[in-house]
Design a protein around this nucleic acid. Structure first.
Lengths: 245, 245
DNA sequence: AAGTGGTCTAGACCACCGT
DNA sequence: CGGTGGTCTAGACCACTTT
């Protein structure tokens, strides 16, 4: 059973989305809301706090809560699944495994994936597409314990993240991502169908489960002009999502 | 006067940093903390909530609060000031204005900066340096009302953001940033001292004040291999900061 | 069973905003 | 001035973890 404050946040969120409270308008006061929802003021404030985190409302001492944005959707985790992100924007994500091999881990891989000596890793190279455009080259190294799981996936699996969750309950609890720009190598260029030395946006990631166990790390290279990353920063929070140019 | 919960969060934060509570260790229970700090349990929980947002601690129902990370520092806003970010990491940021001119706004600029017809804009091109390395080329377009303010700044002003705040009280309330990769143009290459077509990390930003008034927008291009952006994503929040490669 | 964090209540006082 | 949000208190019950 969800807690009251979550239900109230969802309800307010829905009412904003339906236009009952337009952007720039004031919400009813906390006291009024606590009366209409039949809960204590603190519970209403907790719900409003959730909405503020999402950027839906703001507040100023002495004045009412104001609707800031109508935009919905779970920001968190959008970085984690290329396919889910694409589908939520009405695009058609695809994938194609270029190569897949199990080999002994290098020293660096053992460190990053916290593997014991002699552990193997699974290296997978995938091309990710949107419609018929190749937009990203993904090189992933999976920890030893993930090998049998990944190998049950088909070569055209559109969403690895979603399938891992649905079939195995594996969830990425957190990930560290580093973004920079690199020139396409010969291999990058050939697989992505761009000229050698073209600028690519590189995202290196290391993902972990809830018990801090490394799941995989990888190197994703996006073709310039196809996808950009967007960050909304504000004084107390920020969120990141992918954008199509 | 700061609120209790902020003071408590800062104190706990400092105690974690000083090693009193190592990573992986448990904090005293909420009841114990409320007794030692002499406040109600709710106030302690609020302080712990702040620390959780920063990724310093986690909690599970039925078990103690656990220290997750020692890393400190204000994540939010670090994207906004190149100079402050650099100094906080012990580096020596510098700036040099390449050109500065007031001209009539284009249609696109009028839209982005919400200017009336006939409004002028100030275009500034700056090279940003770390020590003696040129690392970024910054092209900024300021809204009309910012022109007299910016023009009081010297050409070697190391931190525009900080100066605007200290001398004029101008604060960027939020900004939208878009990251992608581009090839260096001839001008980029010459000003940054890199080869033409080198990959550059481009960050386009549009910043606003608290009343949603556009302040400026810009195009920052980072030399590959000097600076990367780092994003830590987790299930309920994420934060972004710059990293030196 | 005992202890922990998660949620909620019903008050209270204050700083701040608007009229 | 009255109303608003920001903070804080002192309880309470529950779900969950640990012992």
């Amino acid at each position: 059973m969800p807690a009251y404050y979550r239900e109230i946040a969802e309800d307010l969120s829905a009412r904003i989305l339906q236009g009952e409270f337009p952007i720039g308008s004031a919400l009813p006061s906390e006291n009024r809301l606590s009366a209409t929802y039949g809960v204590a003021r603190g519970t209403v404030r907790r719900a409003l706090g959730l909405l503020r985190e999402r950027g839906a409302v703001t507040s100023r001492q002495g004045s009412s809560w104001i609707v800031e944005a109508v935009r919905q959707g779970q920001d968190f985790g959008e970085l984690r699944s290329f396919a889910q992100w694409a589908r939520s924007r009405g695009m058609d994500p695809g994938g194609q495994v270029v190569s897949s091999s199990v080999t002994a881990a290098t020293v660096a891989e053992r460190r990053k994936l916290q593997l014991a000596d002699g552990g193997d890793v699974l290296r997978v190279v995938r091309i990710r597409t949107l419609g018929d455009r190749r937009v990203m080259l993904e090189r992933t190294v999976y920890a030893t314990w993930m090998i049998p799981i990944i190998q049950t996936l088909g070569p055209h699996e559109p969403s690895v993240v979603q399938t891992l969750f649905e079939r195995f309950g594996i969830v990425t609890a957190y990930a560290d991502n580093t973004l920079d720009a690199v020139a396409a190598t010969g291999e990058d260029a050939q697989l992505l169908g761009v000229r050698r030395s073209s600028p690519l946006l590189r995202l290196r990631r290391e993902s972990h489960d809830a018990r801090h166990r490394p799941i995989e790390y990888g190197d994703d290279r996006y073709v310039s002009g196809t996808i950009a990353f967007h960050v909304h920063t504000r004084q107390s929070s920020n969120s990141m999502r992918r954008l199509l140019n």
